[in-house]
Simulated assay, not measured.
Amino acid sequence: MATTTTYGNWTTVVDRFSAGFEHGITEALGDHGGDFDIAAIAADYHQAINEALPPGVTLNGDEFYGPAHAADQQFAGYPHNEHGELDIKAIIDSIDFWAIVAKHDPDA
Score class of each variant (00 low, 15 high):
Met1Ala: 12
Ala2Gly: 08
Ala2Lys: 11
Ala2Cys: 10
Thr3Leu: 14
Thr4Ser: 13
Thr4Trp: 08
Thr4Asn: 15
Tyr7Phe: 13
Gly8Glu: 00
Gly8Pro: 05
Asn9Val: 13
Asn9Lys: 14
Thr11Tyr: 07
Thr11Trp: 02
Asp15His: 07
Asp15Val: 10
Asp15Pro: 06
Arg16Ile: 06
Phe17Met: 11
Phe17Arg: 12
Ser18Ile: 07
Ser18Gly: 08
Ala19Asn: 12
Gly20Arg: 12
Phe21Ser: 08
Phe21Cys: 09
Glu22Cys: 10
Glu22Phe: 11
His23Gln: 12
Gly24Met: 08
Ile25Cys: 13
Thr26Met: 12
Thr26Glu: 14
Ala28Asn: 01
Gly30His: 11
Asp31Phe: 14
His32Phe: 14
His32Pro: 00
His32Cys: 08
Gly33Ser: 14
Gly34Lys: 01
Gly34Val: 03
Asp35His: 11
Phe36Glu: 11
Asp37Val: 10
Ile38Pro: 01
Ala40Lys: 12
Ile41Trp: 01
Ala42Gln: 13
Ala42Lys: 12
Asp44Leu: 04
Asp44Pro: 03
Asp44Ala: 08
Tyr45Pro: 00
His46Cys: 02
Gln47Glu: 09
Ala48Met: 05
Ala48Cys: 03
Ile49His: 04
Ile49Lys: 01
Asn50Asp: 02
Asn50Cys: 02
Asn50Ala: 00
Glu51Ser: 08
Glu51Gln: 13
Glu51Val: 02
Ala52Asp: 04
Pro54Ser: 05
Pro55Ser: 05
Gly56Ser: 09
Gly56Thr: 00
Gly56His: 09
Gly56Trp: 02
Val57Gln: 00
Leu59Trp: 01
Leu59His: 00
Asn60Arg: 01
Asn60Trp: 02
Asn60Cys: 03
Gly61Leu: 07
Asp62Ile: 01
Asp62Trp: 03
Glu63Leu: 11
Glu63Ile: 12
Tyr65Glu: 10
Gly66Arg: 04
Pro67Lys: 03
Ala68Cys: 06
Ala68Ser: 13
His69Leu: 05
Ala70Leu: 12
Ala71Ile: 10
Asp72Asn: 15
Gln73Ala: 06
Gln74Gly: 02
Gln74Asn: 00
Gln74Met: 00
Phe75Met: 05
Ala76Arg: 04
Gly77Glu: 01
Tyr78Phe: 06
His80Glu: 09
Glu82Ala: 14
His83Tyr: 15
His83Trp: 15
His83Ala: 15
His83Gln: 15
Gly84Val: 06
Glu85Leu: 05
Glu85Ser: 08
Leu86Phe: 04
Asp87Trp: 07
Ile88Val: 13
Ile88Gln: 04
Ile88Thr: 04
Lys89Arg: 15
Ile91Asn: 02
Ile92Gln: 04
Ile92Trp: 01
Ile92Met: 11
Ser94Pro: 13
Ser94Cys: 15
Ser94Glu: 14
Asp96Trp: 11
Asp96Arg: 13
Trp98Arg: 13
Ala99Tyr: 10
Val101Glu: 04
Ala102Ile: 05
Ala102Val: 02
Lys103Asp: 10
His104Glu: 02
Asp105Thr: 06
Asp107Thr: 00
Ala108Leu: 04
